[in-house]
Amino acid sequence: MFKIMQPAAVLAALSVCAQAASAAPNVPDPASVEAPRIAGVTSAADEVDFDKYFYFHRAETTFDQALADIRECDGYARGLASPYGYQETPYPYAGTMAGAVGGAIGNLLVAAIFGSAELRKARRSNMRRCMNYKGYDRYGLNKDVWQGFNFEEGLSSVKEDERQRKLAIQAKVASLIQPDGKVLGR
């Protein structure tokens, strides 16, 4: 069954995307970023949902690098035409951008057809693929703990300040907190 997205919802979502189009956010002091407890919080019963609830970690990685990587993958996952962290390319993209909203528009239109669940699933897959290419391992996590510093994104977008707060926590986990449990596949 196709779901039709209301025009108002599209406009509201694009408005959030437009807010995201401002300059790349600052890098916070990692000491000021919340450190969630991930050791000993996940049980065997959680394993069935490890394809949804997980975190990334890479040894010998600084907080700044992890945050740059996570922001870049987040940008890809939400279809920004110019994700934070993009590097110079041999092609003249700089003056030819669609605006940072970019592919988020197509993304929303697809969600209007296929529904929010498909968009949430696509985001998870994009993050897993992108972070895997960057050399990060993936570990499973209890859902309640995961919800404390992660978000899903379907038809409704996460406010930019909340997004950046959670991405910073994810970066701290990815770089400075000892992982717990076994490494999952990508």
Partner: peptide
């Protein structure tokens, strides 16, 4: 070799 390239259409990202 070329890229990276922006995800203009908000589709699945791979290489």
């Amino acid at each position: 070799a070329a890229g990276p390239v922006p995800n203009y259409y908000g589709v699945q990202v791979d290489r």
